[in-house]
Nucleic acid binder design. Structure first.
Lengths: 365, 365
DNA sequence: GTGAAAGCGCTAACAA
DNA sequence: TTGTTAGCGCTTTCAC
């Protein structure tokens, strides 16, 4: 790898000035065709690739949008394994007797949002930089990233609120999910409360359910909170007594749902329905019901929230509220690009609609 | 948003030189504690965030690793929808009667590789930039990205081979999956052939299967080719006649698998087993078998390749060869980082082992 | 249509 | 331990 060619090399090679080389890339039509082709030929001959850093510095814009997620700590397990190079490959045969049905955790969120963002960024002519905050270095990574992009999208909870607020004064920031940060920051979220309210309303009005248990996720999660509020509203609106606190907390995991399910099943008397703050926990409750010999939905209706694949593939299939994750990612980028285009526009709050899917975990097949 | 503060502003504010400000970030221990704290205080007061562009330019390294994927064209459908801001959110209720069982396509690859890469990049002190090539602009995006990173990881097939070769002379490149590019470029892949050979060997040796049909994916895919070769080898090794060409091509999609399955089912005589080049197609074959009233695995054994979640959640569960996607992403970053550290080391070819999972689509429950 | 020249904000010698 | 001073490679006026 010899010295990397620069504009100067290309200019010399093509017999033009560096300004012309730059123009060939930035404003091709201001350069005479013959000159342009000569330059392009030199570019090709030398294998010239424009330096993003130099460009970013001179133009004061990088063309990069940052996407920052909170850490998925589970991922770190076993991350330190070394590789054996030259190992010629091998195949192990494993008899999989089933049992470990757990699919990947809640990070499906991550995947879909990323996909939506990427598509939208591409359409707007931006590249996407992905950052994941992990433990102590999260803040550092976040700031580092902030220095490399034109604007940044943050999943709520990845970074302390005040940190976001501070950064927002220097750089366009869009917060995804969670609660809105005052009126200063652009925000994209889904209709958590409305979705839960609609689902619970259906259970009560259409299915005549009156005894409902609620399994919440992690304490302090804004999404969790909004869903819980939606649950309460549905009851209150109908003159039903709303509990002050959730019956259980399952930390958004399937195992947490199983725990909650076991406890419920062991009671003298089952509620008619268990409403869960996400799908993983709902699947856990169904696991526990199956083990306890309780029929879903015959004896116990179970509902989730999120709309993950596993819920469509489970038996019974899971009634849930689907969040348009990909749409969220897309909307976040759109919002950011708009602000980049017009820094003066007032902060927007985009709220995306959800869909309630009724399936066999709440309706007889 | 006023003018963004720079090192100069911080230096003035703290009463030091810009070099000291820089040192506080790059080599904190070479700065006297008192000075450092004064600088840090100014940084905080001014809300200073170092410019990645300037840093990259001056230091000749960006601290960014690029990850380039081929386009997932399906994603582009409907991408143009606009948003209604201020819409206060809504929830629609949908009765999901089932039927559309299709899960997300083959881009699961994307997700897991990304996850592995991200983790590893973080551990090595790098940030990840994600690029997806789409149609005509793929090349452009690729080069653009190349100009912004210290090294780049490319999924085979995203970019023409010669383009990769050319770039590799200017920038460390790691190719993921596919075939190895001569001896000049680092390469990470999985044991496609070995995995398929082991699986088919099991069918023949342990289950006594002798009539096998093969459903290949897309023509020209190196992975597809390796799997097909593995299939043939398994037969040849055992003195069985190996066909010259696959029975079907399903383009790696579930629908393609269904088509192949329909055709197979309509034959006078079924083969004992259908070996598919990926899970999606295998699930499609199972769909067709179910519709045609053919029992899997009783009358027809079906196997896949990849190890996607849907295969673990299907009925019957799918026998398959699991690719360690996350591991691939991780290995690619490790390989790249090593080359970054030592540009002189010879190009490596890392091949990761696979696991064959035997489940009910090939074994009676 | 093209060139000259002044930065963009930072790092890394080298001096002090 | 701290400061001075060249650049890093590009974009962008402003002349010509």
């Amino acid at each position: 790898m010899t010295r990397v060619p620069t504009v100067y090399d290309v200019a010399t090679h093509a017999g033009v000035s560096i300004a012309t080389v730059s123009r060939v890339f930035r404003q091709p039509d201001t350069v005479k065709e013959a000159t342009r082709e000569r330059v392009l030929a030199s570019v090709d001959a030398l294998g010239y690739v424009p330096s993003g850093a130099a460009r970013g510095l001179a133009a004061r814009r990088t063309g990069v949008i940052g996407l920052f997620f909170p850490g998925l700590d589970a991922m770190d397990a076993d991350a330190g394994r070394r590789l054996d190079e030259g190992d010629d490959g091998a195949a192990t045969i494993v008899r999989d007797v089933g049992g470990s049905v757990d699919t990947r955790g809640g990070d499906l969120y991550f995947d879909e949002v990323l996909r939506g963002s990427e598509v939208e960024a591409w359409r707007s002519g931006f590249v996407l930089m992905v950052g994941v905050g992990r433990g102590a270095t999260a803040h550092e990574t976040f700031v580092d990233m902030a220095g490399r992009v034109d604007g940044i999208i943050v999943l709520a909870g990845s970074v302390p609120e005040d940190e976001i607020g501070r950064l927002a004064r220097r750089l366009p920031v869009v917060v995804m999910a969670g609660r809105r940060h005052g009126d200063e920051v652009d925000h994209v979220s889904v209709s958590n409360a409305e979705g839960m309210r609609a689902l619970v309303g259906h259970l009560i009005d259409d299915l005549g359910v009156h005894e409902l248990a609620y399994v919440a996720g992690s304490i302090g999660s804004p999404d969790d909170d909004e869903r819980w509020q939606g649950f309460r509203e549905a009851l209150t609106e109908r003159g039903l007594p709303a509990p002050d606190a959730p019956d259980h907390r399952g930390e958004f995991t399937r195992e947490g749902g199983r725990r909650a399910g076991r406890e419920l099943v062991s009671r003298d008397r089952l509620p008619r329905a268990v409403v869960c703050a996400n799908d993983q926990m709902a699947l856990g409750v169904i696991d526990a019901a199956r083990i306890g010999g309780v029929d879903v939905p015959g004896e116990l209706i179970v509902t989730g929230f999120d709309g993950i694949d596993a819920g469509r593939l489970s038996t019974p299939r899971l009634t849930t509220v689907e969040q348009p994750m990909e749409e969220v990612g897309r909307a976040a980028v759109q919002t950011l690009v708009r602000r980049l285009t017009d820094p003066e526009r007032p902060a927007a709050s985009v709220r995306l609609p959800v869909r309630v899917y009724l399936r066999e975990s709440s309706e007889p097949a």
